[in-house]
Simulated scan of single mutants.
Amino acid sequence: MSTLGDWARLLRVSALFTVPGDALAGAAAAGVRADRRILNAIGCSLCLYEAGMALNDWADQDEDARERPDRPLPSGRIHPAAALGTAAGLTGAGLALAARAGRPATVVAGALAATVWAYDLKLKHTRAGAAAMGAARGLDLLLGAVVAGGTPLRPAVALSSAALAAHTYAVTRVARDETTGGSSVAPLAALATSAAIASVLGAPGFRDRADTDAKSRPGEPAHAYASDAPGAGRPVSGILSAQGFHGARRLTAPALALVYGAAVARPYLHAALNPSPHLVQRAVGGGIRSLIPLQAALAARAGAPAIGVALMALVPMARRVSRKVSPT
């Protein structure tokens, strides 16, 4: 008979802490407030993420029976039909939450759900698998950008989506060897990718110069913007007051980018020096958890440093839960 612990392991609940930051970073990048509508995006993301986890184990039953016989499905603690039904139910729930947020959110959520199912059922063991995973994270951030009426074509949205996709692609490449071990190529490539992302986000000269003039945005509350330079308003997502915003962002975003780079450097380097299954699994786990400081840095760089700082509170919780339930 299955227990809550079995379901927690099937759904890899420790990885859930990496999900809310996608939508929040997307909203910040789109220059909109993190209001009640963003809760629909976060709920949708959580449902689709867990749907993917359940579907992943259902699709990998034979492989897990050989390499991970203690997993809930091959061990018989959870019936495969229950896992598949959970995946379908959570997908439906996620799409329903997106539908409440409007047509743009429904379209993006539909593409995200299709990507998740295509990855688990077909693409996972192909060359397109890592790219599909990266695309899923990028779409998840885009969901947060459109759900609150933001403009998805802003440069900050493209940068944030690309950063999340690149990071996820790199982690997925490393994860291919987590049960057998492998070469140093994937961990080194992931290390280089993360270093490049951290360098871009930490660059002091980066700006999102999309049109953010409050006067050109009919219906936008005046207090949603703060002065960034004489004559130029900038979005702060309704989080910080105008006074002191620019200085806070200048300090917070590079600091969070540094935290992100440091979070992934050690486990990737260890796996590169010794690509044993244990160290590769640790590198994958570190790569998954480091999504949180990455999302925090993206939010801060896009103009919501308070959201970035708040997201960092999820890091110790994710680490604590991952000691009991592995995110991989």
Rank of each mutant, 00 (worst) to 15 (best):
T3S: 15
G5T: 08
W7I: 06
W7M: 06
R9H: 04
A15I: 06
A23W: 13
A27E: 07
A28E: 06
I38L: 15
N40P: 00
G43Q: 05
C44E: 07
S45T: 13
Y49T: 13
A51I: 09
M53G: 04
A59F: 00
A59C: 14
D62R: 15
E63F: 10
D64G: 09
S75G: 14
R77E: 13
A81N: 04
A83F: 08
L84K: 12
L95H: 08
L97R: 09
A101W: 03
R103M: 04
A105K: 13
A105I: 05
V107Y: 05
V108A: 11
G110D: 09
A111W: 07
V116Q: 09
K122M: 03
L123T: 07
R127E: 08
A128H: 12
A130Q: 05
M133I: 12
G144V: 07
G149W: 03
G149F: 06
T151W: 04
P152Y: 03
P152T: 01
P152A: 10
V157L: 10
Y169V: 02
V171M: 13
V171E: 11
T172K: 01
V174D: 07
A175C: 03
D177P: 02
T179A: 15
T180V: 07
V185C: 00
A189V: 11
A192D: 03
A192T: 14
A195I: 00
A198R: 09
V200Q: 00
G202M: 05
R207I: 06
A210R: 01
A214I: 09
K215V: 13
P221Y: 06
P221R: 15
A226M: 01
D228N: 00
A229N: 02
A232E: 08
A232Q: 08
G233W: 04
R234C: 04
L240V: 13
A242C: 09
R250Q: 12
T252I: 14
A255Q: 01
A257M: 07
Y260T: 01
G261L: 03
A262N: 00
N274D: 15
P275A: 03
H278G: 03
H278W: 02
L279W: 09
V284H: 10
G285N: 15
G286V: 10
G287A: 11
G287R: 11
S290V: 09
Q295V: 03
L298Q: 12
G308S: 11
L311A: 12
L314A: 15
P316F: 05
R320W: 05
V321F: 04
P327L: 15
